[in-house]
Amino acid sequence: MDRTFTAVLAAAAVLATTSCTVAGGGTPTTSPPTPSRTGADDREICRDIYRPGTEADLDPARNQKIGGRASLSTTPGMAEAGARLAAAAGQASITDSDPSDRLAMIEAQRDMAMVCRTLFGPGPW
Rank of each mutant, 00 (worst) to 15 (best):
P122E: 13
I106W: 00
V14W: 07
P99K: 00
A40M: 09
D111V: 06
Q91A: 14
A87S: 10
P124H: 01
E44P: 01
I94K: 12
D42L: 06
E80S: 14
A89M: 01
E80P: 02
T95D: 04
T74P: 02
A13W: 05
W125C: 06
R69G: 00
A40P: 03
A86D: 09
Q64S: 11
M114R: 12
E44A: 15
M112T: 05
R102H: 06
P28N: 09
R62T: 10
P33W: 02
T27Q: 15
S36N: 11
D57A: 07
P28A: 15
G39Q: 15
P52T: 05
P60F: 01
G25F: 07
D101I: 00
I49S: 11
P33E: 02
L72R: 15
A113D: 02
T54A: 10
R3I: 11
T30G: 14
R47V: 07
A10I: 05
Y50C: 06
T75E: 12
P52F: 11
A87R: 03
D101H: 02
E80K: 14
S100L: 07
A13I: 09
R117F: 04
L15I: 08
S97P: 00
D98R: 03
P122K: 07
R3T: 14
A86L: 03
P99I: 00
I94Y: 00
L15E: 12
W125F: 15
I94R: 15
D111G: 13
M114L: 15
T18W: 04
C116N: 01
A56E: 05
T34V: 08
I94C: 02
F120C: 06
A56T: 09
P76V: 10
E44V: 13
I49F: 14
T38W: 08
L58D: 04
C116D: 02
L9I: 12
T30V: 13
Q109D: 06
T21N: 08
S93V: 01
E107I: 10
T38F: 11
L119R: 14
A89C: 01
M78I: 03
L58F: 04
